[in-house]
Design a binder for these strands. Structure first.
Lengths: 238, 238
DNA sequence: GTCTATAAAGTGATAGAC
DNA sequence: GTCTATCACTTTATAGAC
């Protein structure tokens, strides 16, 4: 498939067309599965155009990641800042922290020219592809952001073992990334219909799910009839 | 890096050495980032060996996926069967369903000759790489397994909207896959130490986290002071 | 800024000798 | 079962004409 002829003829700059084609292909196929030729062909440009406009394929990949991830992480920090300023040092409600963590997706997708579906897929690629390897600026932004949110969670859940908290945050991040990157696959596998855009409802669902998981008490076992007939290799009991 | 000379000299069959080398490389680099030459070099075999023993690179990939995923899915179904037989048609406790869902990882990793870390990484690759595309037999097994577990969850959570449940299961699966595939990345980004093997404790943490998220009540908002000053684009409230 | 032509390296696969 | 040699492609990147 190639770019609509209209975009080429209506004089959209080659650089812009390349960027749009790359974002579409990256979100669809993953960063490592798209060749320079795929991009230039889809953009209706010459094979040398990517290297002329972006120096190398790798630079283009990094540019795309930075363009979409950094604004999200920046807005996350800004929202957390605002919440903490408002509360004046007290622990925040989990839901508000989680809201600051995911709502930036909803606001940044509106600022972008991508469809919601493509935006989330691309975001999932950024976070899940390449074994988590990201450009330096993105990696640093992520570290800073996660450090701040981790502290906010710690304050919101005083007394919780830090290692236990880290795992709960890990599960939370995993639920978020997977939902974005693999929503289509999951729908196919479950033959279910978890619905399309708008995504506000999904983010709301995510917040409630994660808040419950993060807040959950250690004595949850009250809910369950403990099976005491465990064999030798049955080493964990919920 | 190449295979330890001992394995070559001690007469381990070439086919076996290729399989071990491939599994190690696939888990480390991902299925799409490993070439036939990478594998044969690591295994100390000739470049033509992969095609001789496995017909093609693609067949080898599918074999590896099947070897590790299918036993896990089979054991999941067997455990769920046993639970449902025991309970005689009544809804099961969430923790028991989740236990049947994740404990097979712990038992299958013991049956395999892989280290825990490698096993989980490889499993994460199977589920996360290639945009969720799996060999036919694996895909079918997954569909069957997810259908059964979805029904079990529905019975355990009567009255819950099916679409809401589907999303909660989606979050659950995401938390699990991400934890396995990206534990190392996450540790790096958080500069945290979420601990290494043994994994029993992690699975226990996962069960409690997911159970709380799945079971969570719709009126969770009681916990939080609702911000009523939302702007026009602030469309979801937890 | 765009094009062609080409370099240099890598890919999976296979025929045929041993 | 293993090896070499090679085929037929594809990849990124670039030099140089226009």
């Amino acid at each position: 498939m190639s770019m609509t002829k209209s975009k080429i003829e209506s004089g959209v700059a080659t650089r812009q067309r390349l960027l749009e084609a790359a974002e579409l292909l990256f979100s669809e196929e993953g960063f490592d599965a798209v060749s320079v030729r795929d991009i230039t062909e889809k953009a209706g440009a010459n094979v040398a155009a990517v290297n002329y406009h972006f120096n190398s394929r790798e630079h283009l990949v990094e540019l795309v990641m930075e363009r979409y991830i950094n604004p999200v992480n920046d807005e996350r920090l800004a929202r957390l800042d605002a919440l903490e300023k408002k509360s004046g040092g007290k622990g925040l409600p989990l839901e508000e922290i989680l809201d600051a963590f995911v709502r930036p997706f909803a606001t940044q997708v509106r600022k972008s020219e991508l469809s919601e579906k493509m935006f989330y897929k691309l975001m999932g690629r950024c976070l899940g592809d390449r074994g988590g390897v990201m450009p330096r600026s993105v990696e640093q932004g992520f570290q800073l952001m996660l450090m701040r949110f981790r502290k906010a969670f710690e304050k919101a859940l005083p007394g919780l073992d830090p290692e236990e908290l880290l795992w709960r945050v890990h599960f939370t991040v995993g639920a978020m990334i997977h939902s974005m990157a693999h929503a289509e696959t999951f729908n196919r596998l479950t033959q279910g219909d978890s619905g399309g855009p708008p995504m506000e409802k999904t983010l709301s669902r995510f917040i409630r799910f994660s808040a419950a998981g993060l807040r959950q008490e250690m004595d949850q076992e009250l809910h369950v009839e403990q099976p005491r007939t465990k064999g030798p290799q049955e080493e964990f009991l919920f």
